[in-house]
């Protein structure tokens, strides 16, 4: 699975990079997005506007699979605003696999009516701009959006994000079991979205709907911050 390595390549700080991209970008929509910029790395997490983001895709490889739906919910560590929740179905460039239908429940007839990503891109980016996206498992949303935009506009996209799964992984470094623990039938700690949520007493939400998954991710981040981080934590220590 291709893990994006933007973090290691990065020389400039995120606000500087976004400012630079705002200058070099040729796409109006993308330009608007970059111009909104992002908060300074020293900003306390309690003051950061965020947006939980989730894609349903036809598979896990951004070079072979396509986005079928996008959900987002704006929030801060204090509260989620459902009034800002948005959801888009988009027509995948590649045919819909039968196997992926069973996962996210989006069918061919749903997709037939849906617009191409290009038609709703401006709307989507306007809802993301100025906020730090939060995802659960960073190998999906940013790489998929990067590839999809490259293909349509000749320009990729990048932005800082928070990954609730990476935070869980950081909190539970010794997840694999040793021989004795396996022998004793212990279960490894799972950092999947639903399992992580249950550790914080968050309710079960039905999975595989982009808005609900985004909401679930936003709530998980709020809970992680309450339990393990000070509200004064620098966003620069968390974003990837």
């Amino acid at each position: 699975m291709p893990e994006d390595n933007q973090q290691t390549e990065q020389q400039l700080s995120w606000p500087e990079r976004l400012a630079e991209l705002a200058n070099s970008s040729n796409d109006e929509r993308l330009k608007r997005f970059y111009e909104a910029g992002c908060v300074d790395a020293d900003t306390a997490i309690k003051d950061v506007p965020m947006v939980a983001l989730d894609f349903e895709t036809t598979g896990l490889d951004p070079n072979q699979h396509s986005i079928v739906s996008i959900g987002l919910v704006p929030f801060t560590v204090d509260r989620v605003m459902l009034s800002g929740a948005r959801h888009w179905l988009v027509k995948p460039a590649l045919p819909l696999h039968q196997t992926s239908i069973t996962v996210h429940g989006i069918t061919h007839s749903d997709i037939d009516q849906a617009p191409d990503l290009n038609e709703v891109l401006g709307d989507i980016l306007d809802n993301l701009k100025g906020r730090i996206p939060v995802v659960h498992f960073r190998a999906i949303e940013r790489p998929f959006l990067n590839v999809a935009m490259n293909w349509r506009t000749g320009e990729g996209i990048t932005f800082p994000l928070l990954d609730t799964m990476a935070i869980e992984a950081h909190l539970h470094p010794d997840r694999s079991l040793n021989f004795w623990q396996k022998l004793l039938g212990k279960q490894p700690i799972s950092i999947r979205l639903a399992d992580s949520r249950s550790r914080y007493g968050l309710p079960h939400y039905p999975p595989h709907n982009a808005v609900v998954d985004a909401l679930a991710t936003a709530e998980l981040l709020m809970a992680q911050m309450r339990h393990h981080f000070s509200p004064e934590t620098r966003i620069g220590d968390l974003w990837l």
């Binding site: 929030f75 509260r79 459902l82 709530e219 709020m222 309450r226 339990h227």
Partner: peptide, 14 residues
């Protein structure tokens, strides 16, 4: 009503 809901999370004891 649901469309206007705001969600908050409170740790035990707060």
């Amino acid at each position: 009503v649901v469309a206007g809901i705001e969600i908050t999370y409170f740790q035990a004891g707060t």
